[in-house]
Structure formats: structure tokens, C-alpha cells
Design a protein around this nucleic acid. Sequence first.
DNA 1: AATCGGTGTGACGATCGTGTGACACTTTTC
DNA 2: GAAAAGTGTCACACGATCGTCACACCGATT
Lengths: 230, 230
Amino acid sequence: MSPAQQPCVLVVEDESAQREVLKYNLEAEGFRVALAENGDEALLMVSEEKPDLIVLDWMLPNVSGIEICRRVKANPETRSIPIIMLSARSEETDRVRGLETGADDYVVKPYSVVELMARLRTQLRRTRPATMGERLIFEDIVLDAAEHRVFRDGQPLKLGPTEFRLLSTLMEKPGRVWTRDQLLDRVWGRDIYVDTRTIDVHVGRLRKALMVHGGSDPVRTVRGTGYSLG
Amino acid sequence: MSPAQQPCVLVVEDESAQREVLKYNLEAEGFRVALAENGDEALLMVSEEKPDLIVLDWMLPNVSGIEICRRVKANPETRSIPIIMLSARSEETDRVRGLETGADDYVVKPYSVVELMARLRTQLRRTRPATMGERLIFEDIVLDAAEHRVFRDGQPLKLGPTEFRLLSTLMEKPGRVWTRDQLLDRVWGRDIYVDTRTIDVHVGRLRKALMVHGGSDPVRTVRGTGYSLG
DNA sequence: AATCGGTGTGACGATCGTGTGACACTTTTC
DNA sequence: GAAAAGTGTCACACGATCGTCACACCGATT
């Protein structure tokens, strides 16, 4: 979880408008964003995506924000993930309770986006001293997220949008095996229904694009499961 | 109306009510505002946001305002940023001490908003045209923000206001890909609703304007995402 | 009133990207 | 070995996206 190159922020918020605002701003700041709209989804995403930071709404249907916070902090594997609580309440008691359950910071709605980003960076800096690199590197492949560019051995490559997102996901955690379902989530989107075979085609296209100037195939097929880089 | 070249003011204040007041007034005056509520955040924001001016509260938890002032003025890279100190104390000794540490001006609380804004503008006028080089350069394109003019290969170009802001945004970070939403924010303004397709038209006009005297197209279309320079 | 520069919008054609099915091929299972 | 399951690759048709044009609108200027 630490060798990840691009910071991933999990936003847990039940109100869709709020979610979109956060997503937009976070992406504009160069973060990768995962969304969850209730407690169950949140816990699932935490174990699946291993985000670098969680922005957590206090009020949630079913499992409350506090409960999620407690569980994340109770699990040794996720304990170190910083949590920023969002709350409409400004009562001091709530703030204390929020921090008591293990939240690392506490922001009151309506919040200033600038302020939230600053606190977010502060938390990330605590756990991720490495530069928030928009640049992913695997062997001789360099992917610049901000510039939407990919080089191999110094030579620029031409990728379509989907191929770019696919490579971007694979490079995020080199060596990690991604199932087809996970790739569908990441590259295509949660609610899009597409045949999983489509992935194979795009992996093929990505491979071809990566090897136009020669070089070996960096994509590994894991039979029965999915794909990984290296 | 949030133009690209808006001056950015960093407000360092630990009391949230005061922060909001300043933020509100500064934004109403057309400034971009960054907030920090303690010394550490402040120093972080200074290096990250490179504000054009700092409004600094005297009393801060942990690192005091004076200390921040001293550090900003000690760093050659940030030395030229004007600092306006806010303080509840009116003692002459404090004023002297404040100015001694390098603050450019000193305002006593409770202050008049009008007065503060006036002093702020004075400071900005003093440093802006000189220091902050409002001259953006990309390859053979030169954009002079102060003169509101654009040259390519030494020849002056005729751009409309929107095209100018668009180019100005693109030149701010050459190579970076701007999504249409981001461009709408920077060039048109957060609350204005215009069709995203409108951007395409203006990009087209900008391209034509940039190529009237020949030369290649410096604007890169990133399909599915947006545009970038180079 | 008339003109003019600047702007937003709809329409249209052209291009690019994408999903799917079919088929060959490889690997596993029986 | 044969069957089954998983994967690589190809061509094609559909849809999304983009560049461009013409036109209407609006405010400023004369």
C-alpha cells in the first residue's frame, strides 16, 4: 500500500451532490478518487482499494461514520490510513467524540474547499512523505498523469483514453494482479455494464501500443484471474 | 468570474470566524484566497501556493506570526512576498517589532475592512508588476499579462478577452491537460453555465489566432478529456 | 439608429474510439 | 487424446467526440 504512486482518496458521503463536489475538487488537485455512498460500500472499498486517505461524512445511513471510523482504526492493516471527518454539527462534544474514535482531523460543514485540501495535504504528508508524484514509472515506461502522456524508453506512445486509464491503473501497483471486475470498476466505471471480454481486447491493444517500438511485453496474464504489470 | 491571473492572498489566522470574514471580503474584491490556521499550514501553503501576498495574524498556536514572517523573509524564494501583520495589540513596540522582522505593513485589530483592502492593494501594486513576472512564455509564444498582449515569434496577435484568458490558463502550466470543467472554472467562472462545447469553439478561435502568421498548432487535443499546450 | 467586435449555440460532417462476435489458439481438465 | 475453458486477435459497425461554420444575440461605440 505504500509503494503506490498516486494518492487515492476515498470519499464516503451519502449525498450525491456533495460527492461530486469533492470528487471534482480532489481530481483537480491530482488525486485519484474512490466513492462510497454508504457504510457497507465504504468498508468494502477500504479493504479493496486501500486508499491513502478517507474523507468521511459523519451522518450515514445504516452504518454511521463513527462506526466506520472505529472499524478502520481497529483493523491493524488499515489503522494507519488517515481519516478526515466531515460533519454538519459544530458542537464541541461531537468534535471530541470524532477524534476519540480515531479520526485524524475534523472539518465542519459548510467547509472551505481550500481549507479541506490543505488539511488533506497535511494528513497525507504525515503518512506519505514522498512527493505527490503525478508520474508513474515502471521499468522503462513513464506515465505522466497530469500531461496525459506515456513514454517508453523515452519515446512517446499514442494511447486511446481507455488504454491510458487501463495502463494507469496497472502501473499504480506494479505486480498486483487485478481481476477483470476490478478493472471494470476502475477503468470503465462502477455502473457500466460491459462484457468482461472487452477487457481482453483492450489489453491486447495496450500491449500492441506498448510494443510499437520494440521491447518485451510488460503485461502479465494471470490465467483464471486477470492481469498485472510485470 | 475567476480569471486565471487573479492575485492570490494567503490568510493565516487561527480563529475561524475571522478567517471567514477575511475570505469573504477578499473574494468579493476579486482575489483568490488560500487559508491557513496555524504556522505549519501557513509555511506549507506559502511554498505550495506561492501567494502574492500574506495576511498574517500575530498570535498563532505553536509557531507565532513573527516566526513565520521571519522565515518567509529569510527564504530568498519567498522574500519578495509582501506581508501584512494583523494584531490585537496597538503598542508601538509591537509595531516596531513587527516591521523589524520584515513585515511590510501592520494593521491593528479591530481593523476597517476598507482600510485593510486599501493597504493590501498598495502592497500588491508595489510588488506585482516588478517581481511576479506576469510574462508567460511557451516556445515562441509570449504572453504579457500586464500589457494584456500576446506575441508569437515577435509579432503581435489579436485575441479576444476569452481567448486571452484561455491561452493564459493553458500557458500557466504548459503540458498539463485541462479538463473542460476546469477550463470553465478558470476562464468563464465557477457559477456561469455555458455548454462545454463552447470551449471547443473558443479553442478553435484561439488556434486560428495563434496561427495567422503561420507556425504549427501549439494546442493539443486530448480526446475524451480536454486540451493542453504542447 | 446603425455598426461592430465579441460571444454562445445548434447543426453537420469527419474522425476516432469502442464494444461485440467470430474464430484460432493455448492451457487445463477429464 | 478429447473436451472444455480461457485467452489473443481480427474486422466491422455503431456511437461518441471534435472541428468548423453560420447565425443570433448583446453591449459598447459612434
